[in-house]
Amino acid sequence: MHLLRQSLLALAALVLAVGIWAVYVPAAAPWLERAGLYDLLGLEPPAPQSAEGGRRGFGGGAAQVVVAPVSTGQANARVSAIGDGRALRSVTVRSDATGMIRELAITPGTWVEAGALIAQLDDDAERIALERARLMVMDARRNLDRLRQLGGSGAVSAVQIREAELALGTAELGVEQAEFDLSLRRITAPISGWAGLLEVAEGDRIGTQDTIAVLSDRSSLQIDFRIPERFIGQLSIGMPVEVTALARPDHPLSGEIVALDNVVDRTSRTLRVQAQLDNADDSLRAGQAFSVTLSFPGDTLASVDPLAIQWSGNGAYLWAARDGQAVRIPVTIRQRNADSVLVEGDLAPGDLVIIEGVQTLRPGAELQIVEGASAAAPARADDA
């Protein structure tokens, strides 16, 4: 009980001291307000009176302040997503025939031009078949020429000549088939691109499903990502995007949207989007993860200097200079930029907000606007 009585006496003494300080030291009022005592007690801060009875700063005269005009700015809605990178074109090279690799003409990590040889399979049987087919064509052509010469004397019927023509056509098709079979033994690059790691070596016997190499044209990368369906109406082909490789967060890149899906995923309620990113320096690889950010234009709001923003127990506010007097205006911060803050409040373009000299201001205090250097030490402890 003795300890409780001493605590209550000490609390009462503290309250009395604060009250005396607030009454006999007017300059203490802003500090008490900043400490939140007025908000805690539910009281309105007292308005200081000058010698002439008007409201002024606590120094007894007009408060010297520096002001900045209110402008307008557009709030941006930003959407971020994680996407996967894909090469502009990528092809898995496989053989259309079964056989042993006689020659492997590429090495991993090299650039391969379209049509260049990748691998040569053994082709002895196919070359023999081609020579046989050519001999059959020569024989069929000589037989047809002989029958046509005899046809004028009536010794050969038209049916025999027709059968010889058919035999020649069949032999010519045999040559084409043999040439095609021989071409399958030569595996060439379908596109120009970089060769990845090879899955086979010279001497290996491969089948039609075996992968030989993967060629990737990564001069540009395509980034697949998804965004919420509420932004679909604001998407368009060619819209710029900000891209950052998760492995290189200090190296931001720029790209643009090149394709939009036509179906929203019912499970995630998102739309698949594809962006394209230049990779001329070949510093990126397919399969990398990327952070993609899209900016959508938002509402037009009042833009103020960051120094104008103050804080109290009720939230953010700022001081405006109207008719030579200070007006306290509560605001809601919507977006912070490097050199401005977009806010909602009772402000209009061209209004003057106070950015320096706010530490002694009260509602209705008379103001003297000065230019340039600091009018007074700003209370930066409350800045946003």
Rank of each mutant, 00 (worst) to 15 (best):
H2S: 10
L3Q: 12
L3C: 04
L3D: 12
L4N: 10
R5H: 08
R5C: 09
Q6K: 10
Q6L: 12
Q6I: 14
Q6G: 03
Q6D: 09
Q6P: 01
Q6A: 13
S7L: 13
L8G: 05
L9A: 15
A10L: 09
A10H: 13
A10K: 10
A10Y: 04
L11H: 13
A12V: 05
A12F: 12
A12T: 05
A12I: 04
A13R: 06
A13V: 10
A13M: 11
L14A: 12
L14P: 00
V15P: 00
L16A: 14
A17K: 07
V18H: 05
V18M: 15
V18K: 04
G19V: 12
I20G: 14
I20E: 07
W21C: 13
W21A: 13
W21N: 11
A22D: 00
V23P: 00
V23A: 00
V25A: 07
V25S: 00
V25Q: 01
P26V: 00
P26H: 03
P26F: 06
P26N: 02
A27P: 10
A28Q: 01
A28L: 02
A29N: 02
P30T: 04
W31L: 02
W31Y: 10
W31I: 06
L32A: 11
L32Y: 06
L32P: 10
E33T: 07
E33W: 01
E33M: 02
E33V: 08
E33F: 01
E33H: 12
E33S: 14
R34A: 12
R34C: 02
R34G: 03
A35N: 09
A35T: 04
G36I: 03
G36V: 09
L37Y: 00
L37R: 06
L37G: 06
Y38R: 08
Y38F: 15
Y38N: 07
D39K: 07
D39Q: 13
L40Y: 09
L40T: 08
L40A: 15
L41D: 01
L41P: 04
L41R: 04
G42H: 03
G42Q: 11
G42Y: 05
G42P: 03
G42M: 07
L43V: 06
L43Q: 07
E44A: 02
E44H: 02
E44K: 06
E44D: 09
P45H: 07
P45K: 05
P45Y: 01
P45N: 01
P46M: 03
A47V: 14
A47R: 12
P48N: 09
P48L: 06
P48W: 07
Q49D: 00
Q49N: 05
Q49A: 09
S50Q: 11
S50M: 07
S50N: 14
S50W: 06
S50I: 03
A51G: 11
E52T: 15
E52D: 15
G53E: 11
G53F: 12
G53H: 09
G54C: 12
G54A: 15
R55S: 15
R56E: 15
R56P: 02
R56W: 13
R56Y: 14
G57I: 03
G57F: 10
G57R: 12
F58P: 07
F58A: 14
G59V: 07
G59N: 11
G59M: 03
G60S: 11
G60N: 11
G60E: 07
G61K: 08
G61V: 14
G61I: 08
A62V: 02
A62H: 00
A62Y: 02
A62S: 14
A63N: 00
A63R: 02
A63K: 01
Q64D: 10
Q64N: 03
Q64Y: 01
V65T: 11
V65D: 05
